[in-house]
């Protein structure tokens, strides 16, 4: 499973892993969206600790979840992105929509 999801106190955390590209993104999207719709969390955390590769398909994934979350007033956090992934995120300007944090 390329994503493990935890729900706690109105916060949903999706622990992503492996390579996020155009091939992998749709399955991740489906899994995460199902949890969001079920739990309507106030915060969605996307954890990238175990992601080994990401191209702009990952940016699309974050943008799409951002739209859904902001639709009902929730926010989104990008957690522990490795350096390469942070580089792609920064280039996209998505760090203006979602906080990037390390824990």
């Amino acid at each position: 499973m390329p994503v493990r999801i935890e729900n706690k106190n109105k916060r949903t955390t999706a622990f992503l892993s492996g390579e996020i590209d155009h091939h992998a993104a749709p399955a991740l999207r489906r899994e995460i969206d199902r949890e969001i719709m079920e739990n309507m969390p106030s915060e969605l955390v996307l954890d990238f600790s175990d992601v080994t590769f990401m191209d702009s398909s990952g940016v699309g994934l974050v943008m799409g979840r951002y739209k859904i979350m902001s639709g009902f007033g929730g926010n989104i956090v990008i957690q522990n992105p490795p350096i390469q992934i942070k580089k792609v995120m920064k280039l996209s300007g998505i760090d203006r929509l979602a906080a990037i944090c390390s824990v």
Partner: peptide, 15 residues
């Protein structure tokens, strides 16, 4: 609608 970010060429250019 397929959640493409429109960044393909920007990534290639900058990397």
């Amino acid at each position: 609608c397929e959640e493409r970010a429109g960044l393909g060429f920007a990534v290639m250019e900058s990397f």
